[in-house]
Simulated scan of single mutants.
Amino acid sequence: MSNGPILVVGFGCQRGCPASVLRALLDQTLQAHGIALDQVRALASIELKRDEPGLLELAAQLSLPLTCFTAEELAGYQARLSHLSEIAFERTGCHGVAESAALALADRWGSSPASLLVTRQKAAQATLALATAS
């Protein structure tokens, strides 16, 4: 593991979203931004997804920890999001699961405030964002 910046991936997904969909979105996003998979330190999502099979399977495949935050914790990140989703808010109580979860985890691990390296990327069943902190 490198001592470079802390890089975490936040995921939002529909219930029952398969790990393969999440992995494809992750691989496409990393490739598009020239980021190596081994630079990613952890995965993050919302507490509602703590038992989501696809997310758990992906975390296991990648040997990465999955940290889930409450809607209340994520709601504090609203001002830092690139996109406010009313649908996400109706369903979860926060305006963007992927971005806010990524920021929350990078903030927890880093010594500097986290920033979004890759804003919300959307697939049919999932969203992803990458946050970094040093």
Rank of each mutant, 00 (worst) to 15 (best):
L7C: 14
V8F: 02
V8C: 14
V8E: 03
G10K: 05
F11Q: 04
F11N: 08
C13S: 15
G16E: 10
P18H: 02
P18Y: 00
S20L: 12
V21Y: 00
V21H: 13
L22C: 09
A24R: 15
A24L: 15
A24F: 02
L26S: 10
Q28P: 01
L30F: 01
Q31N: 09
A32N: 15
H33R: 13
G34F: 00
I35Q: 11
I35S: 04
L37R: 15
V40R: 04
V40K: 05
V40I: 15
R41L: 13
R41Y: 07
R41H: 11
A42Q: 06
A42Y: 05
L43D: 07
A44K: 08
A44D: 09
A44C: 13
A44V: 06
S45W: 00
S45Q: 04
S45L: 06
I46H: 08
I46Q: 06
E47P: 11
L48T: 02
K49N: 07
K49R: 12
E52M: 11
P53G: 07
P53E: 04
P53Y: 00
G54D: 07
L55S: 13
L56F: 01
L56H: 00
A59P: 12
A60C: 12
L62A: 06
L62F: 02
S63I: 00
L64I: 07
L64Y: 08
P65K: 04
L66F: 09
L66C: 10
T67V: 14
F69E: 03
T70H: 12
A71V: 07
L74W: 03
A75W: 01
G76V: 02
G76F: 01
Q78W: 01
Q78G: 03
A79K: 10
R80Y: 14
R80V: 03
S82A: 10
S82P: 02
H83Y: 11
H83P: 05
S85C: 08
E86W: 00
I87N: 12
E90L: 12
E90K: 14
E90V: 13
R91W: 00
R91Q: 14
T92G: 01
T92N: 05
G93R: 04
C94F: 01
